[in-house]
Design a protein around this nucleic acid. Sequence first.
DNA 1: CCAGACGTTGTT
DNA 2: GTCTGG
DNA 3: CCAGACGTTGTT
DNA 4: GTCTGG
Length: 220
Amino acid sequence: MAAMCARYSLARTDAALADLFGVPELASVPPREMIYPTQDVPVVVEGPRGVRRLGSRRWGLVPHWADDPTIGQKMLNARSETVAEKPSFRRAFAARRCLVPADGFFEWLKDGKARIPHRFARADGRAFAFAGIWERWGGRGGNEAPPHGSGAGDDAALETVAILTTLPNETVAPVHDRMPVILPETAWGPWLDPENRDTAALAALLVPFAAAPLSCMRLR
DNA sequence: CCAGACGTTGTT
DNA sequence: GTCTGG
DNA sequence: CCAGACGTTGTT
DNA sequence: GTCTGG
């Protein structure tokens, strides 16, 4: 079956990410050629005064009301078409948007019984950013703590993230009918701004990335 | 009205 | 916590 | 929200 | 047509 954004890569050093996103370095972001759901992944979040930071979130969003955090295992992606309304996602969409740095993502082409992996990346090799939303679950401070983890007052809180999806562009369409939302640099500001309540403007950012800058490599 | 879901389409 | 399905 | 009931306990 | 049960 066709894949979705259930695998991506980030083989960048922490320093390179810090440079690309203009944020202080995190302690350690190990380069990875293949990132899986439930792993901790780096994200870029923005605080009150426009201060951006690298953070870490578990991939697979656990809604604030969840009784059992294993529900996050199936919340890898959020459809951009419905993310503003879905009970599981709308709070995160309204208040906790982030960027998820990547330098490639994988989709599987269904060919009869076979599934052939493809890797998509920027032709120029640069890293890019998925649109993400994140949530905080459990811990001591409830769910309304400040947007930077590892801060004070949220012992044992689990911070999780989901990657938004949209229709495929012309590069991806031959392989799969969905693709992750990749935000161009011009969209990073409005997407990250926690004060941005213009949901129509936000939704307008969630469109297929331009086809031309993306390359597709058939693997195997 | 209550019970059950709450998501996407996904290869650890 | 809120919506949906029955 | 939709499907299904919607009545009584009775000699035409 | 409206209420109830699920």
